[in-house]
Amino acid sequence: MPRFSIPEQELVYSGHVACPGCGGGLAIRYMLKALGPRTIVSIPACCWAITSGPFPRTALKVPTLDTAFETTGASISGLRAALDALGMKDITVVGYAGDGGTADIGIQALSGMIERNTDAIYFMYDNEAYMNTGIQRSSATPFGAWTTTTPADMDGTWKTEPKKSMMAIVVAHKIPYAATVSIGFPEDFVRKVERAKSIKGSRFIHAFCPCPPGWKYSPENTIKLAKLGVNTNVFPLYEVENGVYKITMKPSKPRPVKEYLGTQGRFKHLTDEMIAQIQERTDKTWNNLLALEGFSKEHPYCGL
């Protein structure tokens, strides 16, 4: 028998129409491997609203509900309420939403859902822009990036604001469990989703999902970038359980951010000065995270 490091069962059908090298495609595949077949998925407007292909096709081997862009938090609340009302207790409810659907238009419903401590998982697959509509900036787009609405053809027309920290926002709700994952590290990814599944109440997963057409790189490099994002500390892997931070991967020698930025067309306009600035911001955030890890042991949710 072959030995696999992540569950063998496939709950995503082949034949879906995600782009070649789609990071979001791997995220949903790993997510469902961890959650298993007794799962119901709610999907708002996002790439995965269309990747099944047109009616009557479905790309998932679990029941799937399509909903409006801004509704995921409310939708998974409704699914959970119905399951509770119908006495179906053993089913996991998960919302699979993009960064725009989570950090922008869906943030109210997400906040409401977590504040009510709805027993469901909210999974944000983050490709750092509105990719389904053609690469427009979202609040999860990182500082310095080109998108079609931050054209970077002149100084200061790139994304000038930092990426919104969804983890900080959900932890501020006193969520029982929140974690970051990267598709470059499937074992860590699956372990965290399995951990999330075992906990009652609201859970949030933030998944780092490189996007070849949106980030302007060749699709064979999806995994390389997914790892490099972590190994440069641009996207640290950590989890927050009951308010206690735990960094799950600490690169012994973090790679310079330049290695990560330099392989993507969306950053090709960056000057050395800007890259240095991004390096500085990255180091600062990483140090803050290290500090949080220490502090939150004694002061869960940082004592707030």
Binding site: Y13, G15, S52, G53, P56, R57, T58
Partner: peptide
Amino acid sequence: IADVPSQEE
């Protein structure tokens, strides 16, 4: 309600 697996494509 769609029920045809995408793998048929």
